[in-house]
């Protein structure tokens, strides 16, 4: 069997690793983009700055991941790399920019949760909090990964994620335990976003293969997340939640909501219209 057939096999370790890394990178990029949409629209200046700082952390994390994917792809033949990534415009070079800008919605592997619109402040806060708590527990596991590059990225990101968890959970408590209006907004946010939470705890093939996490670890990841979220909800005098209901899935295998297309249209417009544009 030659190298190409090994790599093209959808279950090969290479394919699984690249897809899992793309999934992590896409999650960070789309989160970063959504947070950046608040720039200039925050309720007060300090919180506007907080959100753009968080956006910067996410975009920075996605850059580390895309850069790492690009170096991985340089070790395999170009045809195989192009097939693995599923570009819709053939890039001159596979690098962080072409990975971010030259793939269409079906090639993106982010969770549905992260692409949902920001909505109001409560919805944005709940999205950042739930995703950051998930990342907090996931990256604690991944920083021990045998792939030292991934472990390094997880270790680095973890320090930033802790700030995001702290900042966003304090806001949930303020809003939930605040006024009648702020509480009702939090309740609406939970109702709207909750059906998208389950996808984080339903690993697809590439996560199972590449993360090397067994079912027990996955179950404890889910339980830790739910315990932490409920602890925050209790402090916020909001009703605790469970993950037993039906939930949305599909993002991780490229089946997205209509919202992702609009994000990409805005984010990718410039590099597609003016290829190789630089600052």
């Amino acid at each position: 069997m030659n190298a190409e057939t090994i790599n093209l096999n959808p279950a090969s370790t290479n394919t699984m690793a690249i897809h899992a890394l793309l999934h992590l990178a896409d999650d960070s990029l789309i989160m970063g983009h959504r947070c950046s949409e608040w720039c200039g629209h925050g309720p007060i200046l300090e919180q506007d700055i907080a959100l753009t700082n968080i956006a910067l952390d996410f975009v920075g994390q996605s850059r580390h991941l895309y850069q790492y994917i690009a170096t991985q792809l340089q070790d395999i033949s170009n045809d195989v790399a192009l097939t693995l990534i599923d570009f819709d415009i053939l890039p001159e070079k596979i690098n962080e920019d072409s990975l971010a800008y030259l793939r269409d919605t079906h090639a993106f592997k982010n969770h549905l949760l992260v692409e949902l619109p920001n909505g109001d402040w409560a919805q944005t806060i709940l999205k950042i909090c739930s995703f950051s708590v998930y990342r907090f527990y996931l990256f604690q596991l991944l920083q021990k990964h045998t792939d030292l590059n991934l472990a390094g990225i997880a270790e680095k990101s973890l320090k930033e994620v802790q700030y995001h968890v702290k900042w966003s959970s304090e806001w949930i408590i303020r809003l939930g335990d605040g006024t009648h209006e702020s509480k009702s907004r939090m309740l609406q946010a939970i109702e709207f976003l909750w059906p998208y939470m389950g996808e984080m705890f339903e690993p697809v093939m590439y996560e199972k293969v590449y993360y090397h996490l067994d079912d027990v670890t996955y179950t404890s990841l889910k339980n830790n997340w739910l315990d932490k979220m409920n602890q925050i909800f209790e402090q916020a005098t909001l009703p605790t939640q469970s993950l037993n209901q039906w939930h949305q899935t599909g993002g991780k295998i490229g089946k997205h909501t209509e919202h992702l297309g609009y994000i990409l249209a805005e984010m990718q417009f410039l590099p597609r219209t003016f290829p190789n544009a630089i600052w």
């Binding site: 300090e46 919180q47 700055i49 907080a50 700082n53 968080i54 910067l56 952390d57 700030y163 702290k166 900042w167």
Partner: peptide, 13 residues
Amino acid sequence: MVSRFGSTACKAL
């Protein structure tokens, strides 16, 4: 503390 996030990623206000 006025804000946990400041003028750059490394600073608080």
